[in-house]
């Protein structure tokens, strides 16, 4: 079905309003989410305290004591009506170095076997094109990116790991992502990046943002270890 002809407004409790733009992961729907998120931010509606943009929806958290839900809906619909004219910032491309395989990418061999290709081909495919960042979520700075080449689409682990190290680069179906912090997780881990994705002291705190692109490239184990001493 893709992008809905008419956006669905779901109340999420007494302070949440979920704007659903479509029912699948697609660039068209995601771009609308991003446009709407930027336009809502720019409008700075006094009752809106947070907006959470994701793949296909935008969650607005608001204070109904300041603005009623009906009035908020009117404001949001008006913003949505003017979206075509909202310019989007030029997407940024960030190159992310990854050491693939071994202890850094414990699932590389497994994924290669699943796809009946060599580990080198898995790496080559993973580095073959830039990926769109659909959203940042799950944990601070974690980018959900896609689409992976069909030849790499691999299901999640049957049993999630209790600990996935910080910097781990994983894939799940046609998505790829980076664990910005140590956490439990079920994605197939291909490698690890030495790059810091999140720093609470920085503004903005996340290196990557929704709507931008990431290009992975391979580095050696030595380069991985030297990375932070070099850039410091």
């Amino acid at each position: 079905m893709g992008l809905y002809p008419k956006t669905i407004f779901y109340p999420m409790g007494d302070r949440g309003f979920l704007l659903e733009f479509g029912d699948e992961i697609s660039r068209e729907i995601n771009e609308k989410v991003r446009r709407m998120a930027l336009a809502v931010q720019a409008e700075a509606i006094e009752s809106v305290i947070e907006s959470v943009p994701t793949y296909r929806s935008l969650l607005i958290i608001y204070n109904p004591v300041i603005l009623s839900i009906e009035d908020l809906k009117k404001r949001l619909k008006k913003i949505e009506g003017g979206l075509q004219t909202t310019p989007l910032p030029e997407p940024k491309l960030t190159h992310i170095p990854v050491v693939y395989g071994g202890i850094y990418g414990p699932d590389l061999e497994e994924v290669a076997m699943y796809q009946q290709i060599s580990p080198e081909e898995v790496i080559q495919l993973h580095c073959s094109k830039p990926y769109l960042i659909y959203m940042i979520g799950f944990m601070p700075g974690f980018p959900y990116m896609g689409e992976l080449p069909q030849a790499l689409a691999t299901p999640r682990l049957k049993t999630p790991r209790l600990i996935v190290p910080k910097g781990s680069v994983g894939i799940a179906q046609r998505q790829t992502g980076i664990y910005s912090m140590e956490s439990p997780g079920g994605w197939q881990i291909l490698g690890r990046t030495p790059v810091e994705l999140f720093d609470p002291e920085k503004d903005p705190p996340a290196l990557l943002q929704m709507g931008d692109f990431v290009q992975f490239y391979q580095i050696s184990e030595k380069e991985f270890h030297d990375w932070n001493s070099q850039s410091a």
């Binding site: 409790g13 029912d23 959470v52 929806s57 799950f138």
Partner: peptide
């Protein structure tokens, strides 16, 4: 479902059918 925003008080029901009340340290 496709990952989306959470708010304190969201009640998730995973595959086992037992509800989980979401509090303040989760975002999506």
């Amino acid at each position: 479902i496709i990952s989306e925003g959470l708010i304190s008080g969201s009640i998730q029901v995973p595959g086992n059918g037992k509800p989980i009340i979401i509090l303040t340290e989760l975002v999506t």
